[in-house]
Design a binder for these strands. Structure first.
Length: 366
DNA sequence: CGCATTTGACCTGCGC
DNA sequence: GCGCAGGTCAAATGCG
């Protein structure tokens, strides 16, 4: 028993963007790569599900599997990184994006420095469903991947049903559910569809596996990864009723690269944001983020904060508002001294993705 | 003592 | 049906 009691589930009731059951998406182990000059390349992976990339100039932002349909693959040319997260982590935001076809992006060079993988998951037919599945969005400064591949075409949950029970029930009474999980471990009564949270994956170059992102995490598992000498660690946010999870693994082909996958939304503020000196950017982010980036629970997006914090092109102490071209600068008090760097993080070129998931995802990979 | 981590077992889904 | 892999549980252990 020990210290259990960490809330599971919750996460702000994400669940939009579903619709994989329409059979549009393919499952893992699928994809294609066409990175010739800027076209998209798409691949999927057992872990990261599907990735979708594209150059803005192409106007294509990838799609789920190889047979995505609809205009939801396009992105507003002016989309910012926060837009992504908005879309990824907020079903309504995602839906909004998906409903907003746009003309091909223009000429902004793409640095492809970070990769996001946001999985919109089948839900009980909410907004996301109407909007279709996940869409990949793109900013000039980042490549973004997005997928929605939780289910087979027949709508089968792809993973652990027990987990589904947890997460489904978590929407109502996370705590009780957590406590009862053990007691009802073999219980399959609540065998509803698994409702997985959106996921966002970050690739960072770091010596440290567990990247500091302002939240407190509790490790609850570790697994060896096939074909990789590096294990994958599983973390949960330690805040009760916050069901955000995080997976951390290191690329075996590029050991300097850490893949951090967030799942869900925090329902609380970052503990780090409450500190004065230790999380400058987080604080800035907390104040600078527009309301639409705030999760339902009133917190902000630690993943976004972490992403920016670790972004090599972001000056220390930068405000997230810099990602919001149309947003007025936040009213911030005089900037405090920049926080000491926690690690050396560098988002990787997206080419690295191919290296990270070579065989399992690349169709033409031996 | 409380909390976090470790680690083997277990469960589930998927591919063959 | 079986084996594999991903994901989670939970007892044991460690640490401050």
């Amino acid at each position: 028993m020990s210290s259990r009691g960490v809330g599971v589930g919750g996460g702000g009731g994400v669940g939009g963007g579903g619709g994989d059951h329409h059979g549009v998406y393919h499952q893992h182990g699928h994809g294609h790569l066409a990175r010739a000059d800027g076209a998209e390349f798409v691949f999927s992976n057992n872990d990261m599900e599907s990735f979708f990339f594209s150059q803005p100039g192409s106007g294509v932002v990838g799609g789920g599997g190889s047979s995505r349909t609809g205009a939801d693959e396009l992105m507003p040319p002016n989309s910012s990184i926060t837009d992504y997260l908005q879309g990824f982590l907020d079903p309504s935001g995602l839906a909004r994006h998906l409903d907003t076809p746009c003309p091909p992006a223009e000429d902004a060079p793409v640095k492809h420095e970070l990769s996001l993988d946001a999985m919109s998951h089948d839900s009980q037919g909410t907004s996301g469903g109407a909007a279709g599945e996940g869409a990949a969005l793109l900013t000039p400064n980042s490549s973004v991947s997005l997928s929605s591949s939780d289910r087979e075409g027949d709508g089968q949950p792809r993973r652990c049903k027990k987990k589904a029970d947890d997460e489904v029930a978590a929407e109502g009474d996370e705590k009780d559910q957590e406590n009862s999980t053990k007691a009802t471990k073999p219980n399959k009564k609540k065998a509803e569809k698994r409702q997985r949270q959106p996921r966002v994956a970050f690739l960072t170059k770091s010596e440290v596996d567990h990247l500091e992102d302002g939240y407190r995490w509790r490790k609850y598992g570790q697994k060896a990864v096939k074909n990789s000498p590096y294990p994958r660690s599983y973390y949960r946010c330690t805040t009760p009723k916050c069901g955000v999870k995080k997976r951390v693994e290191r690329s075996y082909q590029d050991p300097s690269t850490v893949i951090t996958t967030y799942e869900g939304q925090h329902t609380h503020h970052s503990p780090a944001s409450l500190r004065v000196g230790g999380a400058h950017l987080f604080m800035a982010g907390a104040h600078a983020l527009p309301p639409h980036l705030m999760p339902p629970g009133g917190g902000f997006r630690p993943d976004l904060m972490g992403m920016m914090r670790h972004h090599p092109t972001i000056p220390s102490g930068a405000s997230p508002s810099m990602f919001l071209p149309s947003m007025p600068p936040p009213q911030m008090p005089a900037p405090s001294p920049p926080p000491p760097p926690l690690q050396q993080h560098h988002f990787t070129d997206y080419a690295l993705l191919q290296d990270l998931f070579p065989s399992s995802t690349m169709p033409n990979n031996p």
